[in-house]
């Protein structure tokens, strides 16, 4: 990505070369700081009212979150080399900055030609047929489209995207436009597989979840981990392209359903 100049290395910080607006210790984004402070405070109060050892542990955890919120410094992020405090880039070609968000990369081999797969994917309105977390994609023209996805815990997320790098039968890339709730970008690559094996399909997705890197962890708790999700999506894409349908047992009969 073209953002290495905006990424802040630890040496730069140590040498005091941090650009305007950064302080050495702030590595947590604004919204996250508020969330940490409020959530941590609530946790501390709740923990103290329990009057048990477990309660004390909760209170201590809460206190550390309050500290994280008020100072904007997270030791865990520090250790992991993560910084969510940086402002969004002005570069229009970058929807998700380098060093931020979540990147997922998955491959699958599909017994179809690159052309067939390319053409199916190129119509983004087909994507919800195998990407279960997408509710709808509407092509609005001019390479632009409007996406509606299911978020964690029953919420929904919308954004506008544009396709910006098309290589016929080889590659499709898209990215969200400025002002999106979830900044994201993706590409899919089609490469002929060895003799008689169809096409190797590689998908690269990058996105910046609403509550920063922490949000992705929270999403994982809800069973909506991006890596698992894209793996299942690609499996369904393969089923759809090879067999014309996706294998399912949803809605079948069993001894669990009420008697007929």
């Amino acid at each position: 990505m073209a953002t290495s100049e905006t990424a802040l290395t630890q040496e730069q910080i140590d040498r005091g070369e941090a650009p305007q607006g950064y302080t050495r210790d702030v590595n947590v984004g604004e919204i996250e700081r508020w969330a940490s402070a409020i959530g941590g405070g609530a946790l501390a109060v709740y923990g103290l009212t329990r009057g048990t050892y477990g309660g004390i542990a909760l209170a201590l955890l809460g206190a550390s979150l309050v500290h994280r919120g008020t100072t904007g410094h997270c030791y865990a992020y520090d250790a992991a080399g993560v910084n969510t405090a940086k402002s969004a880039s002005d570069n229009p070609f970058v929807s998700v900055e380098g060093g931020r968000g979540v990147k997922v990369e998955k491959s699958v081999t599909i017994n179809r030609s690159p052309g067939e797969l390319y053409n199916f994917w190129l119509n983004f309105e087909n994507l919800p047929r195998f990407m279960n977390h997408l509710e709808e994609v509407r092509v609005t023209g001019d390479g632009r489209s409007h996406w509606v996805a299911k978020g964690p815990a029953g919420t929904s997320v919308e954004w506008d995207a544009e396709s910006y790098n098309l290589k016929e039968n080889e590659m499709i890339a898209w990215r969200s436009l400025e002002g999106s709730q979830v900044a994201n970008a993706g590409s899919v690559h089609f490469t002929p597989a060895p003799e008689g094996r169809g096409t190797e399909v590689r998908v690269v997705l990058k996105y910046d979840p609403p509550a920063g890197v922490l949000g992705a962890w929270v999403a994982k708790l809800f069973g909506e981990a991006p890596e698992q999700q894209i793996e299942e999506d690609l499996r369904r894409f393969k089923q759809l392209m090879e067999t014309g349908e996706t294998a399912t047992v949803t809605g079948q009969t069993s001894g669990r359903t009420a008697g007929a």
Binding site: G244, T248, V249, T250, G251, G255, G259, A260
Partner: peptide, 21 residues
């Protein structure tokens, strides 16, 4: 099947077509 060494004949709904094939 309801568990180890526990199988029973039950009244269940009839199956439905779920996919075109």
């Amino acid at each position: 099947w309801f568990g180890k060494n526990d199988v029973r004949v039950e009244d269940v709904p009839e199956p439905k077509i779920l996919n075109p094939r």
